[in-house]
Nucleic acid binder design. Structure first.
Lengths: 332, 332
DNA sequence: AATTAGCAATCTCGTTATTTGAGTGCTAAC
DNA sequence: GTTAGCACTCAAATAACGAGATTGCTAATT
């Protein structure tokens, strides 16, 4: 439903005041600071009406109004001015992405940290793919009984120590060659269907291959990478001074893999906001940005903060960082 | 100074009561629960004496006694019974170290997590060496313009993407061979003194080498590995309900590299306790265990919790985990 | 019909007083 | 050296009170 111009103005006033102060606002204060042309009584009438519509709430009979989650939603969707990041903030982001970042792990770590630092809320970043393509496999002998298995995919390199037993340098080279021949260019999931691979060459090194495949498959970060940053930011907001609320919020981030949309449907960046978070976590809001990258990869970043969040800034930061990621990954 | 048997009993009672309840204890309660044979008045006299000696303190005229840091220290050093871990706890630790853990990073991560989980306090683990010996260097071509540099040392493997420009497969192999010839068996720090290496073979690939060396040196985790776990455990203790204290404690862990003794002087495990932590952080106690591993490595693990900490358990956990580490690293 | 002024009613918050109860420290007796 | 007894101290809980802010309603005004 469409609100009257004046109702919009008032809702905007309540939200923005709450955003900066965290406190409820009174009709008188609205009049003084936002709408000097009408009386506080009129504003009071409008407030009552907005409350009936579900956008505002009352703590008790005689204290000012606060926006509900619905109110915040309305504000973000219809009333919020787009906020440009300051040059300082843009510079901070820029400086975090100037260094060469070729390693995917570094990229998501840096992203999470940057988002959290600039927005000043906790953040979580995900990058994943439905599958990854194997580009290289190398076996490096370390000591008599231990070897390093390196598998390079378009999702980055996994290196993992393996205990293959006593294998000669020649056998190792031979095994490497065979594995490359069989698997390079294939998807990582091909390793899992090992039963289907029948190869006379494979037979000789069967035991070794089994171990290597086990080693790789056990790495659940091979095609999915999560990173959380800035949990401690919650401590800066009075909403979370109550330690039980703080605990709840932190717990939310510990299960962050359920927080982000991990599949992008669109080439364009898609912003989603959960106002008042989940049912168990009504104190948090979650802003997420998701999009497709080259090669069937999904990038997804989220900001988790209080419902009283600077949504405009959160969105700007997510967009800015997402752009940087796009730049980096497109170059490859 | 040696305390009388009865004073010892009373100090023990105060500490143990405080340990479990967190509250001050009164003379009457001590009588009832710990020393039914003497009157509360006698106990009061002893309490006064113990207070004069600096082991106990008074919040105000009429509330029970709490141990001071000195009191805790005395307790731990002379009065504390050694506490065996329960079979469940031992099993938990065991299960965390059964899987093959060949990767050093995994070891310290697992150690930190295990310590934190079993002791129920925050933990920090360090493993480092004055230097690491290079065992292998490999360059793996990923795409036309990017390569993976793998350097294996006795401190684990570092793999890092590098942008060496357009290098042919043959040149890469050749460069690998030369680097191995020059550096395998040498300490990692040899890479830093690159100026001293004059080699005619090196000249051809000078640019590549420079880049590789930069890549490796920039990894400060090559010979020093830190891990913190369980920061959120602080939230479970009433001492840290006050959010400013919580912040202080978390900050302490963020600078955890200053927390642990990073040089072991002795082959035997050495336990150290800072009662009442540092000057800026009088609410925390820090229990550390340090010892030498094979090959000039130092292992150091710490537990950070409230002064009112279960020191017996903390020490047992650190010892148990340290033993596991010893087992693993000795096997190599 | 919309707006406004006026006012009673409501509720929070800070202050002050009062009480209660636990615990100590001292003294004198054992 | 130990203990009983008791005055004294202090924190924490409770109540009472007033000040201040804000609403919601009603009646007057535009």
């Amino acid at each position: 439903m469409k609100l009257s111009k004046r109702k919009e103005k008032i809702l905007k006033a309540v939200v923005e005041s709450n955003l900066s102060s965290g406190e409820p606002i009174s009709s008188k204060a609205i009049q003084k600071e936002y709408l000097p042309d009408v009386s506080s009584a009129t504003i009071r009438n409008e407030l009552m009406s907005l409350e009936e519509l579900g956008y505002l709430a009352h703590i008790h009979t005689s204290s000012g109004r606060v926006p509900t989650s619905e109110g915040y939603k309305k504000y973000v969707q219809e009333l919020m001015p787009t906020k440009k990041l300051t040059t300082t903030e843009l510079a901070t982001i820029q400086s975090n992405f100037t260094n060469k970042l070729v390693n995917l792990n570094d990229i998501i770590e840096r992203s999470a940290k940057t988002i959290s630092d600039v927005a000043n809320y906790a953040s979580v970043v995900y990058m994943g793919a439905s599958d990854a393509t194997i580009q290289q496999i190398k076996l490096v002998s370390i000591s008599a009984r231990s070897q390093l298995v390196v598998v390079v995919t378009d999702m980055g390199a996994i290196s993992e120590m393996a205990d293959l037993g006593n294998v000669s340098e020649e056998d190792l080279d031979e095994a490497t060659k065979i594995m490359c021949k069989l698997f390079v260019g294939k998807p990582l999931s091909a390793l899992e269907n090992r039963g289907q691979i029948v190869s006379s060459e494979l037979l000789k090194y069967k035991e070794i291959f089994e171990k290597i495949i086990d080693t790789i498959i056990s790495r659940d970060d091979a095609i999915k990478k999560f990173r959380v940053a800035g949990k401690e930011k919650f401590m800066e907001y009075p909403e979370f001074e109550d330690i039980t609320k703080l605990k709840r919020a932190i717990k939310l981030l510990d299960n962050s893999d359920e927080l982000l949309p991990v599949i992008a449907n669109d080439d364009d960046i898609k912003i989603n906001i959960e106002f008042g978070g989940t049912a168990e976590n009504p104190d948090c809001s979650i802003v997420t940005a998701t999009y497709k990258l080259k090669g069937d990869k999904t990038f997804s970043a989220g900001i988790v903060g209080p419902v009283r969040m600077d949504y405009a800034k959160a969105i700007s930061v997510l967009k800015e960082v997402s752009d940087k990621i796009k730049d980096i990954t497109d170059k490859e």
